[in-house]
């Protein structure tokens, strides 16, 4: 068996990439390619499915099979890919717009169905590609180009949503926490059933500029400070918690995935049905 390095999963022909200086997308992509290599996969075993947006452009830089589709439907394409060939490792790379805003319905149903897919959701709290408008994860009061005086809507907690809807593996981290990011991606990709890794990612150009700081370095410091592990988070006061977000793996269970259930149920009914037809 040939072993592959992360570079075998990276299509370098299109570098430099389109992302802004200090954008976290490149770091998440790096962690993704490293995770695939360390798992001993080959590019032909993997289908990377992307949506639309900054992170939706990531397929331009992957050397696996790839499907880049319309906005919000990555999980729906991926569901078809997985059921069309269940031997494939299928990973969706979606932004917060793709995953829980325009594609929110597919997200909750993929989790409920527990289809054997991995969703790497890069959450930068806004629509970067189209100029920094608010999304369904933009926090209350945050400033974006469509909420110039502050967002009147609260944002979704992607991990809680995934957990409630039934995902087998749910985790959150940041590009600053690169080692844990890579390891969580490996766990998620290996996990049978629906797995979600939310990566809170800096967008210095838009969300950072309006709400944190336009400097890439400052945004990384922000992630370093704001992302705290579960144990530490639990010891915080409510006020402190509101100023931070919790990182780590929150759900890790083994509910049977959709295709396993589907095969089980249909083989049972198939034998019961024999006499009828």
């Amino acid at each position: 068996m040939t072993t592959h390095t992360h570079k075998d999963f990276l299509d370098q022909r299109h570098l430099p990439h389109i992302w802004c200086p200090g954008c976290g997308d490149g770091i998440v992509l790096r962690a993704y390619t490293m995770a695939l290599a360390e798992l001993g996969l080959a590019p032909k075993d993997v289908v990377t499915v992307t949506g639309i947006g900054c992170w939706g452009k990531s397929d331009d830089y992957v050397a696996t099979h790839a499907l880049h589709g319309t906005h919000g439907r990555a999980l729906a394409y991926a569901t078809g890919v997985k059921l069309g060939n269940p031997d494939l490792t299928v990973v969706t790379l979606m932004g917060d717009g793709d995953a829980v805003t325009i594609g929110g319905n597919h997200f909750i149903h993929a989790a409920r169905r527990n289809i054997d897919l991995t969703a790497i959701v890069v959450n930068n709290y806004n629509y970067g590609m189209t100029g920094g408008q608010y999304s369904a994860t933009t926090p209350l009061n945050s400033k974006t180009t469509t909420s110039p005086l502050g967002n009147a809507e609260p944002g979704f907690d992607i991990c809680s949503l995934a957990e409630t809807a039934g995902a087998n593996f749910v985790a959150r981290t940041t590009p600053y926490h690169i080692v844990s990011l890579k390891n969580l991606l490996k766990q998620a990709i290996t996990k049978k059933g629906f797995s979600v890794v939310e990566v809170i990612t800096p967008c210095p150009t838009y969300f950072g500029r309006y709400n944190i700081n336009p400097s890439p370095v400052a945004n990384m410091h922000w992630l370093k400070e704001k992302g705290v592990p579960v144990a530490k988070y639990q010891q915080m006061t409510e006020e402190e918690q509101a100023q931070h977000f919790v990182i780590g793996a929150f759900v890790n269970k083994d509910r049977p995935d959709f295709y396993t259930m589907y095969q089980q149920i249909n083989s049972r009914n198939g034998t019961e049905r024999e006499g009828e037809r």
Binding site: R73, Y77, T79, V81, L83, G84, N105
Partner: peptide, 29 residues
Amino acid sequence: LPQVKGVFLQMEDELGSMAAVIGASAAGT
């Protein structure tokens, strides 16, 4: 479909249905 080793999937809506059809076909089915 299950009787011929195929898969039937009732999607959450028609947007997803069409997308899943594309995905499965791209996977060779």
